[in-house]
Amino acid sequence: MKEPLWKTLTPGSVILEPGSSAKFKTGSWRSMRPRWIEENCIQCLFCWIYCPDMSVIVEDGKRKDFNYDYCKGCGICALECPGKKGNKAIVMEKEGG
């Protein structure tokens, strides 16, 4: 017989798996979508340090694309992006547009 749900819970509602929020994808919250334009990127990483959702992928000190599984589309990265010669490396576009 299957154990009732309440018997399977961790005592004291303690959560034992650190960072398990990764299982909860917030990308579907997005109405606007950031697009990274690599040629305009000066690798300042401001987008990375200011992203509230840890959705800018940086590998070995180098910026890669967005993690759209979690990006909520707030647009902070695009606003803060200094770009190159006046051309932004991140632009916001309508999701699904």
Binding site: G19, S20, S21, F24, P52, M54, K72
Partner: peptide, 8 residues
């Protein structure tokens, strides 16, 4: 980690 539910 990501996956938190603070507002955009």
């Amino acid at each position: 980690a990501y996956g938190h539910r603070m507002c955009a």
